[in-house]
Simulated assay, not measured.
Amino acid sequence: MTRAEPGEPTLAAPPPAPGADPPTSRRHGYGTVVLAAFALVAAGDLSALALGADAGHTVLKPLLMPLLAAYAVLRQGPPLLVAALLFGWGGDVLLLGDADPLFLAGMGSFAVGHLCYLALFRRHGEHHAPARGTFVVATYACALIVTVALLWPDLPSDMRIPVAGYSLLLTAMAFGATTLGLTAAAGGGLFLLSDTLIATDVADWAQAPRPDFWIMLTYLAAQALLTRGVLTGALTNGSAPERR
């Protein structure tokens, strides 16, 4: 290519291809890398729990939700989703301690995260048909009543009201997740299962071998599925289209 002489027309840069959006493409590429990092750290954390390596779990657990939140940011997820994940991170860190005040504070952090999820479901979810909605409400209500009734006698007296109140909020979140489709519904159900396993430990019920492994496995799957469900549901149920 030769330099144009004065007065000669210059060649204009070719226009971008239709639909091309390099910044968005780069952001999505970074998102894929961050999601892969989340999967690797999750695998490492679960391996540490399976092997009884408490130090590994202590190091890796606090990295998980920030990575998932970073993925949500890079995928242009709703701010409430990022907030829910970061409040989950707060609960994760607080529950690394053994003291009751830390446990209650962690429960409170997760509770705020559930409120964020509920706001998301209200904004982006679709209403069920009346018959289906009644069935789903009845199913979750029965699960809540039976679980709290069974746990209540064995819970420490100072934990009964907090656990019952948290269980009500958690069940509402799990029900709300059903309005965003099967992916989010599965995430809500797994979150309910994960925290129920924690409650059985607080109630001093007999536990399966390596109970922390099963708690963390269901919890990580829950947060990942909720994140995916919200990102997909926010796109298809009324948010501005995400560029691809």
Rank of each mutant, 00 (worst) to 15 (best):
A222Y: 04
R132T: 13
K61V: 05
L120V: 10
A221E: 03
G7V: 03
L94C: 10
L150N: 12
T2Q: 14
V202M: 08
A206S: 15
L155V: 06
G7D: 08
V112F: 06
L155C: 05
T227W: 09
P14G: 02
A222W: 03
I215S: 01
G19N: 07
L182A: 14
I145L: 15
G97E: 15
L35T: 03
R228N: 14
T24N: 13
V73N: 05
L95R: 07
L80H: 06
H127M: 12
T58D: 14
L192R: 00
A184Y: 01
L96W: 03
L192T: 01
L118P: 00
A39R: 02
R122A: 15
P79Y: 02
V202T: 08
G233N: 07
R228C: 12
L120N: 04
P14R: 10
P79S: 04
R210V: 12
L80C: 03
D21R: 12
C116K: 00
L67H: 07
A206Y: 11
R123P: 03
L85N: 01
V34S: 02
T178G: 09
R27E: 13
L235D: 14
F175W: 15
V73D: 06
G133R: 09
H128Q: 12
G233I: 07
L85H: 05
L51Q: 14
G113C: 00
R228T: 13
H128R: 10
F191S: 01
S47I: 04
A172G: 08
H28W: 11
A43T: 13
G88D: 02
A70V: 13
A99R: 14
T147V: 11
L225H: 04
P6K: 07
R160H: 09
L190D: 01
A72T: 09
A72Y: 03
W214T: 02
T10H: 08
R132A: 15
L180N: 03
L64I: 05
F135M: 12
P18Y: 06
A53G: 00
L150Q: 13
R122G: 15
A105Q: 05
A12K: 09
L67S: 06
H128N: 11
L169H: 01
L190T: 02
R243H: 15
P211F: 02
W89G: 00
G7K: 07
L226Y: 07
T32S: 13
P79A: 08
D45L: 08
T183Q: 11
L235F: 09
L192G: 02
S157M: 11
D204N: 14
S167H: 01
L192Q: 05
R26K: 10
T183A: 14
Y166W: 01
L95W: 05
A36D: 08
H128L: 11
W89E: 04
D201R: 15
G181I: 06
D201E: 13
P209D: 13
P66R: 00
P101Y: 10
G90H: 00
L35C: 06
M216C: 11
S157Y: 07
R244I: 13
L151V: 04
G176P: 10
M159H: 05
G133N: 10
E8L: 11
A13D: 08
T236Q: 12
A240I: 12
A84I: 05
L102H: 09
V33G: 05
W89Y: 06
